[in-house]
């Protein structure tokens, strides 16, 4: 397709967290990775990033109330 999905206006910034960042995140939130929101392995954005199953994706959203907000999703098989 002519479009890189990551550049679309509706798509916020997605980044893959490194193992270390992932560990730190789960520690600060005091949860296991299964408690994170999910994103499917066949999601167009996941494909574009080349993320693997079990990766955590950090999403930087533009929030109308907070300016910028962070969200995390775990890549899972559909």
């Amino acid at each position: 397709m002519a479009l890189n999905v990551l550049e679309h206006v509706l798509v916020p910034k997605h980044e893959i967290l490194s193992e270390e960042e992932k560990k730190r995140l789960l520690e600060t939130l005091n949860i296991s990775e299964k408690q994170l929101p999910k994103i499917l392995l066949n999601d167009p954005v996941v494909k574009a990033l080349g993320a693997k199953e079990g990766d955590v994706i950090k999403i930087t959203r533009k929030s109308p109330t907070a300016g910028k907000s962070f969200y995390y999703r775990l890549v899972v098989k559909s």
Binding site: A2, L3, V5, H8, L10, V11, P12, H14, V45, V46
Partner: peptide, 27 residues
């Protein structure tokens, strides 16, 4: 293509991913 949008939430989820669908629901 970077600004063209549809109001079909399922279609957007399929083409642009779940986060885009979320933004579209709010919008």
């Amino acid at each position: 293509p970077t600004r063209t949008v549809s109001n079909d939430i399922h279609e957007v989820a399929k083409v642009l991913g779940i986060e885009a669908a979320r933004s579209l629901i709010v919008q």
